[in-house]
Structures are given as structure tokens and as C-alpha cells.
């Protein structure tokens, strides 16, 4: 094998007598290598991007909810981007409880006013910020945890009436999705 490896070196030696042959050769090799690398990267991108959400998935990224039938103290769950969104019409006591908490003592400090557009309506993504379970508390008989909001059965996270984490392993408050009130009885989420 040692013999047959020699011509490769001989090629380098062969190029030298012609002045700057080696330099030109090295430059050519680098240029070709760079072009090949650009080509390979350009091929990789479509394959990677194809795994991102497709156009039909993105088209469903907003949903309109009719909230007229929801009574005070009731909650509904709607599906947005394949995830549950909790829409709760809070009672006066629940609003008061959410507002009077000392914000700086919270694990994820956030005043209630920053989490709602109308105090009566709390809209949060119903996915626990710990590991993605859906917390309980939407239905009448559900446990609502120590703070009257939601309780995640997977690892025991307690959320208050503003959807803020109060106790348990979850690191952050329930996410508030982007939404607008289209009319008084209709909300567009996303």
C-alpha cells in the first residue's frame, strides 16, 4: 500500500516545478470544497424545513370562540393548535383573590392585570408548564388545588385564579395566548 500511496505525493511534487502550481492547486481544492459544502447545506435545508409546520397547519393557527353561553363561575375548554385553552369567567371573589396577592412573593411574579384583558375573563393555555400535562379544575367536581385555580395531577402543581404557579414543581405561570375580543361575546385566539 505504501507504494500505491506515493503517486498522490508525487502529484504534489510534480506541480511544484511550475512556479506557483501548488498554490493554485490548493486554492482550487478549497474553492471546490467550499462549493460542495454550500451545495450540501442547500440540500439539507429543504429536508429540515419540511419537518416544520406545513401551510395547512399554520392556517389553523387561530380560532374563534363564542363565549356568550359561559355563566359567571363557569369555564370552557377550547382547542387551539391542538392544545386545550381554558376560558374561565371568574367570579368577583376569584378576581379579588387574584388581584390582592403580593406579586413579589410569587415564584413567577406577574400581576393579574398583566394576564387578562377583561378581569372577568381569564384565558390561559391549559398545559402545565412543568412537563406538559393538562391540569384539572375545569369541571365542577375537579380538584382546583390549594389556590382555587387549577391542579396538575401529574406532579402536584397548584395554580391560582389567575393561572399563576403557587406551589409545586412547575417553573412558570400558565401561558396566556395572544387573543382579541372581536365582540363582547366572541374571542379570537391566536
Amino acid at each position: 500500500m505504501a507504494d500505491s500511496a506515493n503517486p498522490a505525493q508525487a502529484g504534489g511534487a510534480h506541480a511544484n516545478p511550475h512556479g506557483d502550481g501548488t498554490n493554485r492547486r490548493d486554492f482550487l481544492f478549497m474553492l471546490t470544497g467550499a462549493a460542495g459544502a454550500v451545495g450540501a447545506a442547500s440540500v439539507a435545508w429543504p429536508l429540515i424545513d419540511s419537518m416544520n409546520p406545513a401551510a395547512d397547519v399554520l392556517a389553523l393557527s387561530s380560532t374563534e370562540v363564542n363565549i356568550a353561553p359561559v355563566e359567571v363561575g363557569q369555564a370552557i375548554t377550547v382547542v387551539w393548535r391542538g392544545k386545550p385553552v381554558f376560558v374561565r369567567r371568574r367570579t368577583a371573589e376569584e378576581i379579588a383573590a387574584a388581584e390582592k396577592v403580593a406579586v413579589k412573593d410569587l415564584p413567577d411574579p406577574q400581576p393579574d392585570s398583566a394576564r387578562v384583558k377583561k378581569p372577568e375573563w381569564l384565558i390561559v393555555v391549559g398545559v402545565c408548564t412543568h412537563l406538559g400535562c393538562v391540569p384539572l379544575g375545569q369541571k365542577l367536581g375537579d380538584p382546583r388545588g390549594d389556590y382555587g385555580g387549577w391542579f396538575c395531577p401529574c406532579h402536584g402543581s397548584h395554580y391560582d385564579t389567575s393561572g399563576r404557579i403557587r406551589k409545586g414543581p412547575a417553573p412558570a405561570n400558565l401561558e396566556v395566548p395572544g387573543y382579541v375580543f372581536v365582540t363582547d361575546t366572541s374571542v379570537k385566539i391566536g
Binding site: 502529484g11 510534480h14 506541480a15 492547486r25 482550487l28 481544492f29 474553492l31 471546490t32 462549493a35 460542495g36 454550500v38 451545495g39 442547500s42
Partner: peptide, 18 residues
């Protein structure tokens, strides 16, 4: 792009095989 790349590779091939 492929025409340029082919040209470059042909030049490299010529040099290597010289």
C-alpha cells in the same frame, strides 16, 4: 450551480490525475 461545481470538480480531477 451544478454546472459551476462540475467545472470545478473537473479541474480538480485533472490536477489530481495529472
Amino acid at each position: 450551480f451544478l454546472i459551476v461545481l462540475s467545472g470545478l470538480l473537473y479541474a480538480v480531477k485533472r490536477k489530481v490525475w495529472a
